[in-house]
Amino acid sequence: MALLSLILHCIHAVPQVPCYFIFGDSLSDDGNNNYLPTLAKVNYPPYGIDYPQGPTGRFSNGKNIQDVIAENLGFPSPIPPFANATGNAILKGVNYASGGAGIRFETGETVGARISLDMQLTNHAITISKIAAILLSNESASDLLSKCIYTIDIGSNDYILNYFLPQFYPTSHQYTPQQYAKVLIQQYSRQIQNLYHNGAKKFALFAIGYIGCTPYAVATYGTKNGSACVDDQNQAVQLFNEALLSLVNELNNNISDAKFTYINPYGFTATGFVTNSSCCEVDNGGQLCVRNSVPCSDRSKYTYWDGVHPTQAINILAGDFAYATTSTSNAYPFNLQSLALQ
């Protein structure tokens, strides 16, 4: 896997697509929350301890998964966050992701301000106007946007910071897990089609990972029957993932001039990693690192950096996997390398 990563990171001199647009939550956020009044903000040590620029707002010790994917696609530098993306840099893409954000607008409100997916779509509309101004025509902007990849990695918080917080949100009282997955996918479908109507043609829609296996979930909710994970949480998000795969098939069947693919970036097996504890000391909430704390010394051996987010080591494996996997159960009908060629 390490050799594959080295090869993938070195062979791409020119980006395979002209631009890469990123929508999502803290797994993808690279600084959009730094300027918001929110608890979901990590622009302080030990975050970024292994990133060249130090703490940037990435919820990791180093790169996040989108940094790795952008490298694999041939981009020479990370995709800038919307919060400070300016000038011609936006022609290469923009990262709109926001820690705490969800498909539903109210998701994450318990942690403070966040940029929901609907708000991210509004920000993208602003970017489109700027691109049209730079290229001096709407037609030129549309032509550019049709060749770009749009990645959306969202939904985890609709469970972690919504459905599984019944003391703050009514959703678990209103919906069974099956009903909630259906409601989420219905709203998500409308949001995806909003992007399509604004010129997007190549979509990578990411599955939700095993949120019930995070140190936060295990410590907060406990496990049953000898399981290492909180099984009911994993079962709930699996319902979402199954519905998302069905949505990808539906969109591909109904929209002939666009390509949609389902990506499960964490569908690989990683051996030799510490999986039952976080690398950094977490705060009382159990999710984020204590400010200025000293993390574990060998961060390459840990799955989880804090209570819920992967380490750079896992992000590299996941980003490479999403780009190049040939497993149709984890990338269907395309991996990201193939999507770029569509």
Rank of each mutant, 00 (worst) to 15 (best):
N157T: 13
R291C: 04
G99R: 14
L121R: 10
P18Y: 11
S278H: 04
I49F: 10
A125P: 03
N225M: 11
E71R: 00
N157A: 08
T269C: 12
N254M: 06
V42F: 01
L39E: 13
I255H: 06
A40G: 09
V230F: 01
A270D: 05
D158W: 00
D232M: 13
T86K: 15
I208W: 10
L239D: 01
N252Y: 01
T271W: 08
A85W: 07
G31S: 06
T110S: 01
G87E: 11
T328N: 10
L247H: 12
L245P: 00
N34I: 03
A2M: 09
G209M: 01
V248Q: 06
N241P: 04
S293M: 02
T311F: 07
N157Y: 08
F21S: 03
H124G: 04
K182N: 10
F321W: 09
C229I: 09
G212D: 04
F203V: 05
G24N: 11
N198L: 15
L251T: 06
Q186W: 05
Q53S: 14
K92F: 11
K63R: 12
H173Y: 13
Y44F: 14
G102I: 03
Q238N: 15
L317H: 02
G48V: 04
F21A: 12
T110A: 04
N249E: 14
N241L: 01
R114G: 00
A217H: 00
V308F: 00
A133L: 11
N123C: 01
C213N: 07
F260S: 00
L288N: 10
S256R: 03
P18F: 13
Q179K: 10
T328R: 15
L161N: 01
V290H: 08
Q191E: 04
N253Q: 08
Q167R: 12
G199H: 11
N234Y: 10
Q174P: 07
G99E: 05
P310T: 15
Y196Q: 03
T328C: 07
G222R: 10
I208L: 07
G24F: 03
D50C: 13
L91I: 11
H12C: 15
A331S: 06
A340P: 08
L136Q: 12
G74Y: 04
N225F: 13
N194W: 15
V14D: 15
L136E: 14
L8A: 03
Y51W: 09
G272D: 08
G57Y: 05
Y96T: 07
N225H: 15
T328L: 12
A133F: 08
S227G: 14
D25L: 05
A13E: 15
I208R: 09
P45W: 05
A236P: 02
I115W: 06
G87A: 13
Q179P: 08
S60R: 07
N64C: 06
V68C: 06
D231E: 14
F334H: 10
P310L: 15
T269Y: 13
N252Q: 00
T325F: 13
C280T: 12
L336R: 03
Q312C: 15
L4H: 09
T86W: 15
D306N: 04
C296Y: 00
